[in-house]
């Protein structure tokens, strides 16, 4: 895991990927082509049901392992018996209608809520037991988790202080997401897109190996969405793992390797996008078939 961690140095580049002069995305500046730590594709994807042959390297331990995860409030099950695992180097879309249990699953995974039954482990441990969680996992659960009266820079600095991350890293992340010029303004004055980028900067502070993002493209302009997609792909190609909860299928379809679909708290499908394509199905068809049937 540490190897992958050290190779995630794309964030260390000081060249801005954003045009800070006018706060617009400039994807053409994304030219960091240093050698990448790339696992063979068959290793990065845990193929369900496929037996590994003796000649293949052993599969790495899953980054995320969720087993029979259940969360009930009284009689009402928000998440019920959800089981999945995520391998290094994958980008996974976590899809489902509003209220299906996506956000609750992420909160259970990240130790913000305690499961009623089952368990969720990241890097083999419960999140709360990780030694330096900010250096292993970066997460954005809501697009507006900021004090409106605090500047973007001070928001990041407070997180960096708590995680014992250098102030220089804060400046690098501000540069990466193109907020250097706006860094001393209070978050109150930020657009939704800027808040998304500030949230991402906070998640990336510790150069984590796992990114957990809830609706990360919400509020981003098209260039921003393109930048995010390229960024996440590169993150995964260097051994990082990404879990994106979303209900914007078109966005997810272009970003992820595999999808998990949750509905009424239950995982109703897990599929690789190329498997879907092989069956001649679009993601939208699969999604609607599964979630609308469940709903009716």
């Amino acid at each position: 895991m540490q190897v992958a961690h050290e190779n995630l140095n794309i964030f260390a580049c000081t060249d801005s990927l954003w045009d800070t002069a006018n706060e617009h995305w400039s994807p053409q500046m994304h030219q960091d082509n240093r050698p990448q730590h790339t696992l063979p594709r068959h290793v990065r994807m845990r193929v369900t049901g496929a037996a590994a042959t003796a000649t293949e390297p052993p599969l790495p331990d899953p980054v995320v392992r969720v087993s029979s995860l259940t969360k009930r409030y009284g009689e009402f099950a928000v998440v019920e018996d959800v089981t999945f695992s995520l391998d290094p180097g994958t980008v996974t879309g976590f899809l489902g209608p509003n209220g299906a249990g996506k956000s609750t699953t992420l909160r259970l995974l990240l130790g913000l809520a305690e499961p009623t039954a089952g368990e969720a482990r990241v890097f083999g441990r419960r999140y709360r037991e990780l030694d330096e969680p900010a250096r292993r996992v970066g997460a954005v659960l809501e697009s507006n988790d900021f004090d409106p009266g605090r500047s973007g820079r001070n928001h990041l600095r407070a997180l960096a202080l708590a995680a014992e991350i250098s102030p220089g890293r804060v400046e690098e992340m501000l540069e990466l997401v193109g907020l250097t010029r706006a860094a001393d303004r209070r978050v109150r004055t930020y657009s939704l897109g800027m808040r998304q980028r500030l949230g991402l900067a906070g998640a990336l502070l510790g150069a984590p190996e796992l990114l957990v993002l809830d609706e990360p493209a919400n509020g981003l302009d098209p260039a921003g969405v393109h930048w995010l997609r390229t960024f996440l792909r590169q993150f995964a190609d260097q051994g990082g793992t990404v879990l994106i909860a979303s209900h914007v299928l078109a966005e997810v379809a272009q970003t992820v390797d595999q999808v998990m679909i949750i509905d009424h708290g239950r995982l109703v499908a897990t599929a690789r996008l190329d498997e879907l394509a092989g069956r001649g199905e679009t993601l939208e068809e699969t999604y609607l078939k599964l979630t609308v049937k469940e709903a009716s």
């Binding site: 990240l110 130790g111 913000l112 999140y127 709360r128 990780l130 969680p133 900010a134 996992v137 997460a139 659960l141 809501e142 507006n144 988790d145 900021f146 004090d147 409106p148 928001h155 997180l159 708590a162 995680a163 906070g202």
Partner: peptide, 18 residues
């Protein structure tokens, strides 16, 4: 209470789950 009001309690607890 500001942390709960503005949601910053989430990043706070993600960085310091203890």
């Amino acid at each position: 209470t500001d942390e709960f009001r503005h949601g910053t309690i989430r990043p706070t607890f993600l960085v310091t789950p203890q």
